[in-house]
Design a protein around this nucleic acid. Structure first.
Lengths: 189, 189, 189, 189
DNA sequence: AATGAATGAGGATTCATTCAT
DNA sequence: GATGAATGAATCCTCATTCAT
């Protein structure tokens, strides 16, 4: 009995499985077969829905960004004043969910892909633009050079994240976030 | 056509070719065949000298770090006082040579490899340790919390580098370095 | 061109082709490619169904033993009394089918494999156990030391087989069997 | 300083190493490189002295047969009467030296090689001829059909050897020899 | 005599992708 | 919608062998 409306369900399952496999492998060296198996379907069906491996990766990247954006949005919703908004953005970038191995792998591969895959580069830029714009907006009432401080903070966040995720996996993420918060305080002063 | 003492020559050629291929591919998806061909020899010979693909990668990573270290060392040699030393370290991290596409790719793959390859992780940590130690040493006479400022600066440098290398390839690296220098000034104050 | 339930068909074809190739080569120096080609499929498909070369060899060994067992079973079915049973077992071991070049090669490689491949050793022991048990059972009514005579006969059969198969390929197998039958008579006396 | 008269030394070392490698591998899957390394020289030199892998194997086989012959000759030297001679031949075939893993492997590969390699077949036949002739000679004064009994005993020896060497490696070889001795007694009666 | 250098040929294995059902 | 069947292409790696020194 052919099922109707399976497409979104299948696609979602595949995207989820793709991210999980990238996380498990720690790289993009994942096979369509494994992804499909994890998603509970045949490799042929995965192809049917996505057309190819690259499109599956792209969909996975989009999902990663969507998840990240949601995290930020939730954090911002609870912030009442500009300073709280800036802090919320920083904290969101060091949320537990961002240190899930799958997420870490996904972000790292993102960076690698960005060098050759225009779609990945576009998405990475979108992320950076959004982070910068969020920070600038929050900092505007707090300092004279919101753009400059936002740029600094954004880069600092990325740098701290990489270090925390890769080379200090046991460190407390929120402790790491504190470093950024300190710079925020000095920059906003 | 010399017939003795080829090993160091061949190894060097292969390491260089490995880096170049990684740079050209923008990822670790390079074949031994291509590397060997670029180095002017047969794939079999490459295997003979390195034992396998992974060892070639590891040798390439070591070379990248050696090059980077040399850059820093040269920069430090010309610095006369602590402040100049700190600035020199920062500037060295944004030297033109660091933005060579091959170097960028190599660094990015470094990050990815670090998740699963212990050797890569070890090397990456060595780089981070050295950067932090260099900065701490230079900052000691300049501020009350040299370690903390060094941590911040190190992360900032990484974050700025990634952004400059990947998403703003046309930006002036030394302009980017200025952002770090500014934070240095504030932190050292 | 049926598209379902190919697995048993393919597997059987591969096993047959493996035995044939071993026979043609006279050793285990056969490639998956040749086996697959002989079986009318691509090497990749052979891997798909067996997972690897070793498993193909093991399946082939099992098949050889199955064929041998069938030969013995048929021979025993026509034997009415103990003496006839013992003779039937001996004759079955020198049946024409056992001197098929492929079978000879397979048996010889069996012996070689048994030294390093546990699966091969297990199978070889199973064959020897069965031969001994068959002989012991048949000899019980005929002599006072059925086990001892069975051991002797079993070894003699193997030795005669090797000599007949390898160094006297034109000799009449049933003539060779006579030697064993003579010992049987003396031992049973 | 070029050494003189190295050829026999090198050849002997290579033959010994070949047998040892075959023993270690349990098959003919040994590389010239490993043999040469074990013999303390370069693969190129091994080639120089033997011309190729096959010739090395052949020389190894010859050596195995020489060792075996020597064992028999020594055993025969101590035998005073025909019965003792026959027993000595049988015992020599189950000497400890024949159960050295390297020797076992060598014999097994012998059997395999005999199917395709004429030189191996020739050597194997020479061994069998000699065994038969030795036995016949010893049995002549003892029974009416020395040739027939010799054939039986020779095959029995081979069969027992294979079983003892491969599938009952812990059994006492001399216990196995007893089985052959018993048949000898009955046949000679 | 001896060897490091070098390679061509080949082999097992993997995988994305296509197709018929 | 869904999948088992099937493969071509590619990749890493091994090895016997040759050659210049």
């Amino acid at each position: 009995m052919p099922k109707l409306g399976m497409e979104p369900i299948r696609r979602a399952a595949l995207v989820k499985a793709t991210i999980a496999e990238i996380g498990a492998a720690g790289s993009l060296d994942v096979t369509v077969s494994r992804i499909a198996k994890r998603a509970g379907m045949s490799p042929a069906l995965a192809h049917h829905y996505f057309g190819g491996k690259d499109q599956m990766f792209e969909a996975a990247m989009r999902q990663i960004l969507r998840d990240y954006s949601a995290e930020v949005r939730v954090a911002l919703a609870g912030a009442r004043d500009p300073a709280a908004r800036a802090q919320a953005i920083i904290r969101a970038n060091f949320a537990q969910s961002c240190f899930d191995p799958a997420a870490v792998s996904a972000w790292m591969t993102f960076y690698v892909q960005a060098q050759t895959n225009p779609a990945a580069l576009r998405l990475l830029r979108a992320y950076q633009r959004r982070l910068r714009s969020n920070l600038t907006h929050a900092l505007r009432p707090l300092c004279t050079d919101p753009r400059g401080v936002a740029d600094t903070l954004a880069a600092l966040i990325d740098g701290l994240y990489i270090r925390a995720a890769l080379t200090a996996p046991d460190a407390d993420p929120q402790g790491t976030a504190l470093i950024a918060l300190t710079v925020l305080t000095k920059g906003a002063a």
